[in-house]
């Protein structure tokens, strides 16, 4: 099936206000996506509405966050349900600087319900880097049973390559790579599953760079196993 594990909703200041969790779910479903994750910057507050929409659209959801580590590396933390992601989000929030949002420059950060009503405006800038470093975020994500995936590692900004210069040695559930170089990276890292994602911030970016995953179940443990199979063909 087609999987797309990195997407933003209107809660991310840099995403379009038209990106409600509902719209993301329905348009991804219409484009043939079977497994979809919502990963707003440093917050999982829109995942409850996202889960309702995905169930209605008959698509398997994952609840996640795109966390900005202290080194300003973006990493994905993905969980089975909104409760787990919201709990991770609490841990992130405690480590997020109380820097007020300048909505004129960065954009608004609305939390919405399943019917697209705004229930809260987050007034702390969500894209800031948290106080924990890369390996601490990895450890915490894995301790909570989540998938840990360094995001767009070959991007010029906010990636392990741009910030650290290299991918720290270790084991990863997957690494996300910008599409044109996916094969090159799979050759470079033969033991780490390489995936692509849409990283959709706008409606016209939905379902543009999914990857193929052989899984019937949408659980983290089944997905982890299926991801492993991407780099060790049967």
């Amino acid at each position: 099936m087609l999987a797309d594990l990195h997407n933003h909703s209107c809660l991310s200041p840099c995403a379009s206000l038209e990106m409600s969790p509902r719209r993301l779910a329905w348009e991804a479903a219409a484009a043939g996506i079977g497994l979809l994750a919502l990963t707003d910057h440093n917050s999982a507050r829109n995942t409850p509405a996202f889960f309702v929409a995905c169930r209605e659209a008959d698509i398997m959801p994952l609840a996640g966050l795109e966390i900005t580590t202290r080194e300003e590396c973006h990493v994905l933390a993905l969980f089975d349900d909104p409760e787990d992601a919201l709990a991770m989000g609490e841990w992130v929030w405690e480590a997020l600087p109380a820097y007020p949002l300048d909505a004129e420059r960065f954009g608004d950060q609305p939390v919405v319900d399943k019917n697209e009503n705004i229930v809260e405006m987050i007034d702390r800038l969500l894209t800031s880097s948290i106080e924990y470093v890369f390996h601490e975020v990895q450890h915490e994500t894995e301790r909570r049973g989540g998938l840990f995936i360094p995001a767009h590692i070959n991007r010029q900004a906010f990636s392990v390559e741009s910030q650290l210069g290299f991918l720290p040695p270790g084991t990863y559930d997957a690494i996300e790579v910008l599409a044109p170089e996916a094969e090159t990276y799979q050759q470079r890292y033969p033991n780490i599953p390489v995936i692509t994602s849409s990283d959709a911030h706008l409606p016209n970016q939905i379902a543009t760079q999914p990857f193929c995953l052989q899984t019937k179940e949408g659980t983290i443990s089944a997905i982890r196993k299926s991801l492993r199979a991407l780099c060790s063909p049967q």
Partner: peptide, 29 residues
């Protein structure tokens, strides 16, 4: 580090950096 620029560069007129991407502009502004 853009988070550092955002927190500490308020008295500066010029930013010296290797972060050549769009996000640097929002933070500089």
């Amino acid at each position: 580090l853009l988070s550092d620029v955002m927190a500490n560069a308020h008295d500066a007129d010029v930013l010296i950096t290797i972060q050549a991407h769009n996000n640097t502009i929002a933070v500089a502004s």
